[in-house]
Amino acid sequence: MNATDANSAVPPLGRSLLAIALVGIGLVLGWALWHQANAQASLTATVMTELPNSGVTNPVTAVLLNFRAFDTMLELAVLLLVAVTAGMLGERRTAPAGERPAETVSVSPLLLSLTRDLTPVMILVSAYLLWVGAKEPGGAFQAGAVLASAGVLAHFSGRSWRSDHRDTSIRMLLVLGTGAFLISALAMLGVTGTYFDYPVAWAGIWILAIETAATLSIAVMLYVTFCAVMPGGDRP
């Protein structure tokens, strides 16, 4: 079962028919696009009109966290699903691998001092990205990715953070992002009568709170996934 059987799924005749059909689809799509090219189907004006009511000044963040908050909540749910599945598969894989202490890996002192010096900077950058997301490009996912990369660096220098997804505190952090979105949706149902419809005066602080929860949660989800797929000791 090597890469040599790459084309064995479909006979040559089927493949050439498929190629012709796809070229046909491509021509139809290209033709449709050509005729749509100067049609004005833009939501820019709507977003810009509603932007003062959103609590943030970056239109992309306004769309992500306010106008289309449902999408972002489901995005976090997808990440949660991946983290839980990868964690479970990693747990099954490392279970029979035997006990082997991680200290046998020699870690260069340079790496250790790099980790020690970089981790606070990364946490700071992450907080900055989270904060600046309201005005400029940035936001929860970027901040969470930087925070998770600090964890990855710590993992490579032999001083792993806790990553066991069976741990209760890790579990709390995993569901924090999706949970914050859900709770805010239900709370807004009580306050304004509609899901994800934040009151204008509170929208900014509310979005910042959700984004903070999402950042922590994204960082933990990425880090748990990373640790689950990392080779567990005896594997090359």
Binding site: V60, F67, V82
Partner: peptide
Amino acid sequence: ITDPVPHALVLTGIVVAVSATALALT
């Protein structure tokens, strides 16, 4: 002028695509 709605949808889509790829690879 840029329309922020497709940008936000693509941002969400990239995250979902990366997650799905990670899951598939696992």
